[in-house]
Simulated assay, not measured.
Amino acid sequence: MRDTPKLLEVCKNRCLLFDNKTKKKSKKAEQLQKLLKLVDAVVEENGGQPYTHKLRHQEDIDSLRDYTQQEISELKDKMHKAHEEQVNRIAEMVGSKLRDTIERLEQQVAEEQASRKKAEEMALAAQQRSNNEICKLREELKQASRRSCAIL
């Protein structure tokens, strides 16, 4: 807050802070006494009235209004930037997790493809051995059949 002292000056340096969460009765009583003293000071300053609707310092009030509008604008800008940064951090985090997941899935697919290829090669080799064995058995059967025909 750039002009906080000016804000206090416009309010005639009247500032009071409360601890609304305190459970201590002594602290509550002390805060109440401070509030009552401030009210008494305002009443005395206003000629016995607790408040006044007169705008004694129009320039100060206009300045305060401008200050408030500018502060609101600055806060909106800060909030917008903070929101954008948060969205960007979340997007980066999600993107990073997504890239990791894609990488892991691609690795799993590659491993499964390699495993499938190896299984196919093994099946093909087993089929080839089986075919060779069948050919060998047929050949032996033909030879045995020729021998038995030759014997007859």
Rank of each mutant, 00 (worst) to 15 (best):
I102G: 01
I90N: 01
Q69R: 11
I102E: 14
K81V: 04
R89E: 05
Q70K: 14
S73H: 04
T52K: 05
E71W: 09
T101V: 06
D66C: 03
S63H: 15
V87I: 10
D66M: 05
I72M: 07
Y51M: 11
T68M: 08
K76L: 02
D60Y: 00
A91L: 05
T52A: 05
E103D: 15
R56A: 10
R65N: 10
R99I: 03
E59V: 07
S73W: 01
L64G: 02
H57M: 09
H80M: 03
Q70M: 01
S73Q: 04
H53E: 13
L98I: 07
M79F: 08
T52D: 05
L64P: 01
S73R: 04
Q69L: 11
K97I: 04
I90F: 15
H57D: 15
Q70H: 02
I102H: 11
S96H: 12
V94F: 05
L98T: 11
E84V: 05
R56L: 13
A91S: 01
R89F: 10
R89S: 03
L98H: 07
H83L: 11
S63C: 12
Q58F: 06
T101W: 14
E84F: 05
E85L: 08
M93E: 15
Y67A: 09
L75C: 07
L75F: 08
A82P: 06
T52N: 01
Q58W: 06
E71A: 08
Q58D: 02
M93C: 03
V87Y: 05
R104K: 13
H80Q: 07
K76H: 05
K78M: 09
H53K: 13
Q58L: 15
A91F: 02
T52R: 03
K81Q: 13
T68D: 14
V87C: 02
D60E: 13
K54M: 11
R56S: 12
I61L: 15
L64A: 07
D100T: 08
V94H: 02
N88K: 07
E92W: 02
H83A: 12
D66L: 09
D100W: 00
E74P: 00
L98N: 12
S63L: 15
Q69T: 03
D60Q: 13
I90L: 09
Y67K: 09
S73K: 08
D66Q: 14
H83N: 07
K81S: 06
A82S: 13
Q69C: 01
V94E: 10
I72C: 12
M79A: 13
K78V: 04
M79E: 10
H83T: 12
I102N: 04
L75T: 02
R99G: 03
D66A: 10
I61D: 11
E85K: 15
V94L: 10
E74D: 10
V87D: 00
Q58I: 08
E71Q: 12
A91M: 03
A82V: 02
R89K: 03
H80D: 05
T101R: 09
L64Q: 06
S73G: 04
E85V: 03
I61Y: 06
I61G: 01
T52L: 03
G95K: 00
S96Y: 07
S73T: 04
E103Q: 13
E59F: 09
T68V: 09
D60H: 08
E71K: 15
Q70G: 05
K81H: 08
G95F: 03
Y67S: 12
A82W: 11
H80S: 05
L55H: 01
R104H: 10
H83K: 13
